[in-house]
Structure formats: C-alpha cells, structure tokens
C-alpha cells in the first residue's frame, strides 16, 4: 500500500545483498587482499556524498530564487544524508589506506576535497542546528550551500596543482565481477540514500509544522 515501508523493506534486503556482493561474490583482490573489499561501500558512498552536496546546492539555489520552504528542506535533508555518507568515506578511506599505502592519509586532490566537503557540510549542519530556525538562517545556509559547490572545485584544482595527479583509476582497473558488484552496491545505496533524504525531509517538515501549530496555539491561548 504505502510505498515508503515497502521501499524500506526492499532496501534492507538490498543491503544484505550488497554485503553478499562485497564479501562473497567478488574474487579476492591480488595485491591488496581482504581490505580491498572496503571499496564496494567506500566508493559508492563517496559518489553519494557528492550527490548530496549537489542536491544541497540545487536546493539552496531553488530556495534563494523561490523562497519556498520545500527547497530549503530539500537542501537540508540532502546535506544531512550526504554528511553521513561523507563520514563513512572519511573513516573507511584511511582504514583502507593504512595497509594499502602504508599511510593513513595523503595530500591528494580527491582526499582533500572530500575532507573539505565534509567540513563545509559540518558547518552547514552546525549552522542549522544551533543558529536558530528563522528565515535569515535559512538564507545564510543557502548561501553556504551555493558557495560550497564551486569551492570544492577550487580546492580540487589547488591540491592538484600542488601535488600533481594521482593515477589511481580503480574502477577501470578492476575486472568485470568487481565492476558489477560496485555498481550494484551503488544502486542499492542510492535507494537507501533517497529513502533517508525522504525521511529527513519529512522529519523537518513535521518539526516546521509543529512550530507553526505551537505559535497558533499560543495565540489562541492569548485570546
């Protein structure tokens, strides 16, 4: 009947399938061994984090132009879910890098721009959580959402200019089973991502209406 619970159940099954793909379906990678299996969740998470950031950008532009709160809620929900995937990327990445590169971190364009993106998302989240819920804060956050996206491009360019490119084409280097697993997990996580955004959107919408009704109630009480 309701699409949301069905989709939730399906994505739960999908997550199990994703683990089967990452742990059993794909062959053991020759040079990196077991730790390479982090990739099947790490890489799609990174893409989804970028997607969340992009959606936040679009929502922020939409809000600045139309001043409709649905755009603002869309931007906020995408930023929050993007932040969750960003945390996953930033924590699983070093865990992979330590055995594979021998170092937790490298000053490499993709790493730095991802870290900066999560930092900007964090600022966005702190702003929304503690800056209040007025119209002005929404616009403040929208400006941050709009400025953040081109900023990541500049950070990427800066670090590339500074360190040179890293010729690490993971996706094109892997064999077909690995690619199948990667894209399947991506599809599953995309569904999870969309569901989470929808859920966050509904939570914020409810909270928005609760605030409005409280105001109305206090006005009625005053009468």
């Amino acid at each position: 009947m309701k699409p949301f619970p069905i989709a939730t159940a399906l994505s739960a099954i999908g997550l199990f399938a994703a683990h089967w793909l990452a742990f059993d379906f794909v062959p053991m990678e020759r040079t990196m061994g077991a730790v390479q299996r982090i990739f099947y969740f790490h890489v799609p998470s990174a893409w989804l984090c970028y997607l969340g950031f992009l959606m936040c950008f679009v929502g922020s532009v939409g809000y600045l132009w139309t001043r409709r709160s649905r755009w603002d809620l869309f931007a906020l929900a995408s930023a929050e879910v993007g932040l969750i995937f960003g945390f996953i990327v930033l924590i699983t990445g070093p865990l992979w890098a330590r055995p594979a590169w021998g170092a937790w971190w490298r000053w490499e364009p993709r790493l730095v721009s991802m870290a900066l993106m999560v930092l900007i998302f964090c600022a966005y989240w702190v702003l929304r959580s503690y800056g209040g819920s007025g119209e002005g804060v929404k616009r403040f956050a929208a400006i941050l959402g709009v400025f953040g996206a081109p900023n990541i491009v500049f950070v990427h360019l800066a670090v590339r200019k500074w360190r040179g490119t890293h010729p690490d084409q993971v996706v094109s280097r892997s064999n077909s089973d690995m690619r199948i697993a990667l894209y399947s997990v991506l599809a599953i996580l995309l569904v999870v991502f969309v569901l989470l955004v929808v859920q966050r959107y509904r939570i914020h919408k409810n909270a928005f209406r609760v605030r409005a009704l409280r105001r109305r109630l206090s006005r009625m009480g005053a009468m």
Partner: peptide
C-alpha cells in the same frame, strides 16, 4: 556571509566556522 550572519544566533562564533572552510583554496 557576514550580512546573513546578522540574523543568526551565535553569529560571531558561526561566522568563522562557515567562512574558514570556504577560503581554504585561498589559504592553500
């Protein structure tokens, strides 16, 4: 961003949190 911060709570704390990540390219 300072214009918008006028409307926020804790504006003086929030402003550097928001501005510093955005000027990272300049810093690098």
């Amino acid at each position: 961003l300072a214009v918008m911060a006028v409307n926020a709570r804790f504006a003086e704390v929030l402003l550097p949190i928001v501005v510093f990540p955005l000027v990272t390219p300049v810093l690098i």
